[in-house]
Amino acid sequence: MWIWYKVLYALIVVIGGLAYGLLLGGISRKITARLQGRRGPSVFQNYIDLIKLIRKRTAISHGVMFFLAPMFRLLGGIGVLLLVPIIANNTALSNFSFGGDLIVVLYFMVFGCLGMALGAADSGHPHSALAPTRGLAQMAGYELPFLLSVIGLAIAHNTVSLSNLVAAQQGGILHWNLFQYPFLSIAGLIAMLGMYMAYPFSVVMAPQEIAVGPPTEYSSTFLSFMFTGRSIFGVGKYVLFMDLFLGGATNLVEAFVKTFVLFLFVVFISNVFPRYRTEQAVRFFWTYPLVIGLIDFIRIFIK
């Protein structure tokens, strides 16, 4: 009986995460438009795009890996969202978090990207083969400060469970990791910008340069799967960073507010910066965030 409740809650979380992710995408488009002095599309534009994409036909075939890649993308997204506890120690919304969930989440974050890279490279289009090489290089860039901050927090709190990390941050705003370990948080948040491929690090998609990057050959239902996967993955990452640095959430409203703040951070940064080249991005990730993060890392060891 217990397992069926768990499945039901998981379904609710995935559907809710999708709806929230699409809404965030719409809000992001609206904010970009307003910053550029336009009216912009409605915030529900992404829902409409998704409906349209599902009902488009397709006659494209590039082999098995091409078909599987959107599935990997979707799985990576759902895996991340279902493993991080939205509200810790809540039966419904703590999801499938367990003792070592942080490690599995780290694995799932790479999983989707790798599947995507395999499928895109299989599609045979020069643009979509070029994009994964950039994407994987950039991933090597942001993974380092991100892993530094995550491992730093794990050592500091002596746990690899997200629920325990959230529990350790309770009891006032100053107990958050953002204030307890500010330098680690800065490193982690900068790595987050790279993960979202937001503007200074958008060389993977590079809309004006290599068409639309990896999904160049994808259309209709495949693209809608990718769209879904990206939205869910986005929400999952916001929740993960909320748990890591912003002290988790004790109720849904708090979770919405905190993830929305993180979302605004990404959107506003991405709207005011131009694009780094791949090697510039990697060099940036391996210098400033890494050095900043090391300050706290050393502090943790000395303590």
């Binding site: 639309v212 999904p215 050959e217």
Partner: peptide, 22 residues
């Protein structure tokens, strides 16, 4: 498609590849 006439408010946006275009 840019700021002056802003076709995106009607849901009209540009994509770089014919595969995804309507």
């Amino acid at each position: 498609v840019t700021s002056r006439f802003d076709a995106e408010r009607f849901g009209v946006s540009t994509v770089g590849t014919p595969r995804q275009a309507d």
